[in-house]
Design a protein around this nucleic acid. Structure first.
Lengths: 137, 137
DNA sequence: AATGAAATTGAAATTCATTTTCATTATTAT
DNA sequence: ATAATAATGAAAATGAATTTCAATTTCATT
């Protein structure tokens, strides 16, 4: 669970607890999908500064609980790490991001990596195109 | 060939030819791999301003001859479009980017897309980890 | 060749996301 | 309670990408 991992990390680094940080992190894991700083700022009622949100997301990234992502947008997104094996369909019309997961793709990746003697740590697969709605519309 | 596509585009948009632009574009296709603006600036002997390089790469992107890419670096890279079906291994230690190509992966992607009724236009696959050298070193 | 309208260029200014600084406030160990 | 140190927010700094603007270049039309 993220609570324990976080607690262990804070302890190890001699960091202190704080209400703001907890609020951000709890919300982040409650929503449980990729978010950017502005979305968090808005959805937390602008009660926590962007600086603190940035710092908190960096912290989560450092202790392995979140993953930084760059889609073809100007700004970064963060995703709870337990979702990070998901891949994404991204609709070029409406911008919707659909998460999916497929074992076959991972197997194929492993085979190719072997061929290149590359040791895989993680991967990112984004498929761009048109979602069901936008094909009709 | 890119020459014709470019010529047609310039003509269509009533744009003019220029020596600087040609130099950038020729070099870009001669090197024939992903580059960022700074690398182009250096390798062109700092004879063309960054503004112009940015503008030229945007132009190439618009006429479909280049693809903008965002790896997990601060700045963008551009890649000749004919390479853009390549996928990438990215070494987390030395930063090397190895291009590869595999039909199996594309087949699998197509099957999944069907399941989700998603119409694929393009995709981006980046595999992070350690290259052969860095596993040993 | 000469003209002029429109595109191109580079330098500097601007934008915008992110990071850092710094003075103030909150937390925690003693 | 005190002292030490971390957390916070506002503002400043950073850095990549874009835009502005005056000067230059291109090119279609004389």
């Amino acid at each position: 669970m993220w609570e324990e991992i976080l607690a262990r990390y804070l302890n190890e680094k001699r960091l202190k607890k704080s209400a703001k940080r907890e609020r951000i992190i709890k919300f982040f894991f409650k929503v449980d999908k990729h978010l950017n700083v502005d979305e968090l700022y808005e959805k937390l009622g602008k009660k926590v500064s962007r600086s603190t949100i940035y710092r908190t997301l960096k912290l989560l990234t450092k202790c392995g609980l979140a993953i930084e992502q760059k889609f073809e947008e100007k700004n970064r997104r963060y995703e709870p790490a337990h979702l990070s094996h998901h891949d994404h369909f991204i609709c070029l019309k409406c911008g919707e991001i659909i998460e999916f997961n497929d074992k076959k793709i991972e197997n194929t990746q492993n085979k190719i990596a072997q061929k290149y003697n590359f040791k895989i740590v993680s991967h990112k697969l984004e498929i761009y195109g048109y979602c069901e709605k936008c094909q009709k519309g």
